[in-house]
Structures are given as C-alpha cells and as structure tokens.
Nucleic acid binder design. Sequence first.
DNA 1: AGTACCACCTGACGGC
DNA 2: TGCCGTCAGGTGGTAC
Length: 264
Amino acid sequence: MPELPDVEIYRRHLDRHAIGRAVVEVHAPSPEILRHTSPHALGRQLHGQRLEESGRHGKYLFARYAPGHWLVMHFGMTGRLASVQASDELPPHTDLVLALDDGSRLAYVAPRKLGMVDSAEDPRTFAAEQGLGPDALALGRREFEELAAGRRGGVKCWLMNQEIMAGIGNVYSDETLFQARLHPKTAVAALDSAELGNLFSSLSRVLTTAIEAGADPERRPDDFLLPHRRRGATCPRCGTGIERIQACGRGAFYCPGCQDRRPG
DNA sequence: AGTACCACCTGACGGC
DNA sequence: TGCCGTCAGGTGGTAC
C-alpha cells in the first residue's frame, strides 16, 4: 500500500505520536532491514535522542534525531508504521521498535521485509543519492510538463518512474490515468500541453484526495477507480467492465470504455 | 531509453 | 475444511 499518500499519513502519524519525544530504547529484531547500519550502531545513535522533525520525499519517510542525522524509512509493498502503548503487544512482523519517553512504542512493521531503514545526513541529500526525482506532491504544472519533454515510453511507466518524479506506484498511477481518461500505454510524447495539464491536475487531485481521506481504502470516493480496481468490476463512470493488462511489468486496471487513448 | 523479468519474503485468496 | 497455485500496493539488477 505505501505510495505517497500512505507515507504522508505515516508522516503525520509520526508528527502526532513521536516528534518531540525522546528515544529511550531501540529494538531491531530484523537486522536484515537495516541498511548501512546494525542494531547495535542504530541503538547507540538513537538512544537518548529527541525526535525533532519529520520529512517525506516520495515514498521515503524521514525523522531527524540530531543535527545532520535523519532516520530513513521505506515501507516496500506491505510495510507500515504503528504506535502501541507499553502495555500492548507489538504487531506481528514488527522489525524495528523505538520506545519513547511517554511510554509508547513506535513500531516499523514490514511483513514481507521488502522495506528498509537507513540513515542520512538530510532528506535532500538522500533523495539526490538515491536518484529520486522531485516529490510528486510538490510539483508545479510547468515542471510537470518539463519532465515529460523528450520522453519516449508509456505514460504509466513514466508516472511510476521514481527517477522522474517520486511517490507514485501501481495503484495511484492507475487512479490518475483513470481520472485523466488516458490508456496506461498512451505515449507520453503523444500528449499535448493541454492533455499534460489535465494529467497534472488529475494527479494532484488524486494525491490530495487520498491524503484527505487518510489514505484509507474505506474512504475513497466512489467515482474513483480504486473501489472498483479488481477483475469483474464495472466502471463508475460508464459502466464498462474494468480490464486488467500488463503495463510496465505490473498489473494495470483501466476502463476500456473511457480510457481510450492508445500508444502512438 | 524503455520495458520485461526475476529475486527478495510472507500472506491472502480462489479453485478444487 | 484443507491443500495448492497464483498473485500482491516496492525496488534493484539483469537482459533484451
């Protein structure tokens, strides 16, 4: 689930439940998720430090615990963040726990262990080293159009390419293309300025709507593709059956009735 | 440059 | 009910 809107919700969770609190204990039962560090080293670095500020770039979440020192979290396909009271049990598959000075514990939970925890000097440097493009939510229309210049491939692949813009995954690329009424394999180069503007406003609306709904699957508007993003469902706009194709190596859902633009 | 495929790891779901 | 194959919201490496 963790694409940009989900990670933004985790960031707000961090702000509400952990920022301003000091770390009193670190427990890393799954060392394999730690990149460039060990449970011991991470514990030594974080112990006694106050979490001071949160940040997000694309699908990466950051927490500053000292000047020039940020904890970095990526959630892979199934990771999430949870807060539990000292008296409560940790969720299954908890891979990293920060015990805080108010008695709560912040749990990084990644059942498939496809995520990772890292450290960085600051989010901007990390994003640059990682080769990430600008955050998809921070883009302006002009910059969005510039990112499309000279691109050869399909629009779904383009939206999901983290080096071009960061934060969009399989689900929200499908949603954006549904809102913009574009077939997933439409060539980026075939879009004129007005169509790119329409795609940009669809993207912005999809991301902000998802965040306002708490990235909660239960609270998605019914005119979104998301509640209907499965085999056998029908389009909320025109009633045509939703289809699934392979695009950019992923299963892409779309409505053949109203997403009619083709490659070329 | 762009896309497909596999690997990583575990859980959920549909068919039999 | 139980077993088994298939698929899954991410990234990185390889191959074409």
